[in-house]
Nucleic acid binder design. Structure first.
Length: 159
DNA sequence: GCCAACGTTGGC
DNA sequence: GCCAACGTTGGC
């Protein structure tokens, strides 16, 4: 079981949207490295931190779990979508997305500033200067540290 | 709104 | 294959 962090702008799609829906397709990713993580490395059951980017303040808002394997991102075929991809064909999609399901809201929202203050997270990809990856791997130690900060019990993953 | 850092595109 | 120009991300 791997650990991940995925970013979303809460004004577009927040942890509350996911909590209300239960599950969603993580569509709209248009970065090859992020796509490759979803296609090559993610598996059902993987744990994912939900990060609110471009927010005031930005930070960890909750937790989700990968509930469906990567599949073609439908928005790439929609000419009216911002994510429209003219190069994509039904038979040769360019972009993929996984399905994720809600696990828990952070018991306490943990801001980027607070994450930066943790020495245990010093090497976290999210905190690297200039880091923009919207889907990134998280080490088990980093995940444990963040779950403690947001006050989510690991038990919540089981079942 | 600003802008640093980064990714992508396209001319050569 | 190089790299300048451009577009995007995302913190501040």
């Amino acid at each position: 079981m791997k650990n991940w962090l995925m970013k979303s702008e809460p004004s577009v799609y927040s942890i509350d949207h996911l909590a209300a829906e239960g599950r969603t397709l993580w569509s709209g990713v248009r970065n090859y490295q992020a796509r490759n993580f979803m296609v090559q490395s993610m598996a059902i059951g993987d744990r994912v931190l939900f990060y609110h980017s471009n927010a005031d303040p930005p930070g960890i808002a909750g937790l989700m779990r990968v509930s469906g394997a990567a599949r073609p991102d439908p928005s790439q075929f929609d000419a009216h979508s911002e994510g429209y991809e003219p190069r994509a064909k039904r038979s040769a999609p360019v972009w993929q997305c996984v399905e994720v399901e809600f696990v828990a809201k952070a018991g306490r929202f943990v801001s980027l500033e607070e994450l930066r203050a943790q020495s245990s997270l010093a090497k976290m990809e999210l905190l690297r200067k200039g880091s923009r990856l919207s889907i990134q791997p998280v080490t088990p130690a980093e995940m444990a540290a963040v779950l403690k900060l947001v006050r989510i019990k690991v038990q919540r993953f089981k079942g």
